[in-house]
Design a protein around this nucleic acid. Structure first.
Length: 268
DNA sequence: GTCCAGGCTCTTT
DNA sequence: AAAGAGCATGGA
């Protein structure tokens, strides 16, 4: 599979904080998603080998024209123009809902390195073994059933700290009938309400899950980084951020958030 | 040693 | 409704 697109930069996507299973390898990355491990690299274009091109095409949101969205933001204000130009190769990945719920419960008040490490342990211990790449064993993200027998201590042993209980309760909810794959049919507010019922899921984590796991690209997750960006760029009070973000970025709020997040991490 | 990380829950005003 | 304490863990 070969991708040639001005709005597709592998390093930017891997480093945008939405996915935690891009492992730097040689000149590119080992990427695990869609129950498959691929070696993906970028020189002239982005390329990797797979038997399921349409699945990956969907994963990378290739049917969407990011130029239209980028141009819209570029003409909106000078700060957005900077941010979009800086991270023009960013896209929103369509990731697995269960994986996103677990990942972003772990992410709360945590740092990216530790999040990555906990997820890697989780996959190695409880996920299916997939294909190898250059002799490296790769493991799928576990399905919910593969975590049914874990104790709170088993979760704690992944290095997730006090979030162990939230993960344990998530699995209990699933055993009791909660099915995150059925939530795709809900509208935005219904989906958010369903996610907020989970322990360890608040406003910000719910927005991330909706954006990266359910492709609800109008939501705008507000975290510590984005707070700094918005306050500086738009001279806002902290309590005004939420309303501003919901109105100002229109139906592409989630994509704007990714541009600003990526830009802010390097330029603040 | 102290502070902080893609916040949330629970308690107190 | 709003504000504050506490929270596991590892790295800076």
């Amino acid at each position: 599979m070969i991708i040639n697109n001005e709005h597709f930069n592998l390093h930017q996507i891997a480093d945008s904080g939405q996915a935690f299973r891009f492992y730097p390898h040689k000149e590119g990355y080992i990427l695990i998603a869609n129950h498959e491990a691929v070696y993906i690299r970028e020189d002239e274009g982005v390329s990797f080998k797979t038997e399921q091109a349409s699945v990956w095409s969907n994963y990378f949101d290739l049917d969407k024209d990011y130029k239209i969205i980028a141009d819209y933001f570029i003409q909106k204000d000078a700060y957005l123009k900077e941010a979009v130009t800086f991270g023009r190769g960013i896209r929103i990945l369509k990731q697995d809902p269960f994986e996103m719920i677990v990942t972003f419960i772990i992410s709360a008040n945590n740092n990216i390195k530790r999040i990555t490490s906990a997820i890697e342990k989780l996959c190695q211990r409880y996920g299916d073994e997939l294909n190898t790449i250059d002799g490296i064993k790769c493991y799928d993200f576990p399905r919910p059933e593969q975590l049914y027998d874990l104790s709170i201590e088993d979760f704690r042993d992944l290095g997730v700290g006090y979030r162990d209980r939230y993960l344990f309760l998530l699995i209990e909810d699933i055993k009791a009938g909660f099915d995150c794959y059925k939530l795709v049919s809900l509208n935005d507010s219904e989906l958010k309400a369903a996610l907020l019922r989970l322990k360890g899921v608040g406003e910000k984590v719910a927005n991330c899950i909706m954006l990266f796991g359910y492709y609800r690209i109008d939501g705008f997750p507000i975290d510590t980084w984005i707070k700094k960006v918005l306050i500086q760029a738009y001279d806002l009070e902290e309590k005004a951020l939420k309303e501003f973000a919901e109105n100002y970025f229109s139906k592409y709020g989630g994509i704007a958030q990714q541009y600003l997040f990526y830009y802010g991490r390097y330029n603040l």
